[in-house]
């Protein structure tokens, strides 16, 4: 998208003559604004209101084409931390029809190993889940998709982020 914008706007670029010249930095004549940097962490309620998510990234600003992680704090409608959910985080570019070239992994939490043969029970203290292996390898609009499977059922949230 950035390439296209620049392409359209710069089709009349002119060249200066050959030979050494001094380069001058031009001050924008208005209209160009820096991108907004919202306070971090961000908060969102899942689609049908089952969970409330407070999330942040490391690094705090999502880097271009580098791995980053997402820390998601999950609470229920009453505000109580949800410690035993399964959280998956993925991202896609809706205008390009593809997702990330990585496969993110959410930490399993602190898991018990029952001796009776039943499945391990994993707990995330304070309802915090860390998903590693996110990477936005292209500039443009991304949608981060959170899916929460917990005691209140499954619910999800999408967050749009323009890189």
């Amino acid at each position: 998208m950035i390439a296209l914008l620049v392409l359209v706007a710069c089709s009349t670029t002119t060249s200066s003559p050959g030979g050494p010249v001094a380069i001058v930095v031009q001050t924008p004549s208005g209209g160009a604004t820096s991108s907004a940097v919202p306070a971090s962490p961000d908060a969102v309620t899942t689609a049908v209101g089952k969970y409330h998510l407070t999330w942040s990234t490391t690094p705090a600003t999502i880097p271009f084409n580098e791995l980053f992680s997402i820390r998601t704090a999950v609470s229920d409608a009453s505000g109580a931390p949800v410690t035993n959910a399964t959280v998956t985080v993925d991202a896609s570019m809706p205008q390009h029809g593809h997702g990330m070239a990585t496969h993110p992994i959410t930490d399993p939490g602190t898991c018990s190993a029952p001796t009776d043969g039943t499945a391990p029970v994993c707990v995330h203290p304070d309802g915090v889940y860390v998903t590693d292996g996110m990477k936005f390898h292209m500039a443009g609009e991304w949608v981060i998709h959170f899916e929460i499977r917990g005691p209140n059922g499954t619910d999800s949230a999408d967050v749009h982020d323009t890189l």
Partner: peptide, 14 residues
Amino acid sequence: MSTTRCRSPLLAVA
């Protein structure tokens, strides 16, 4: 629910 955010320096460059 969906929110929109924009915090990349790349867009500022464009």
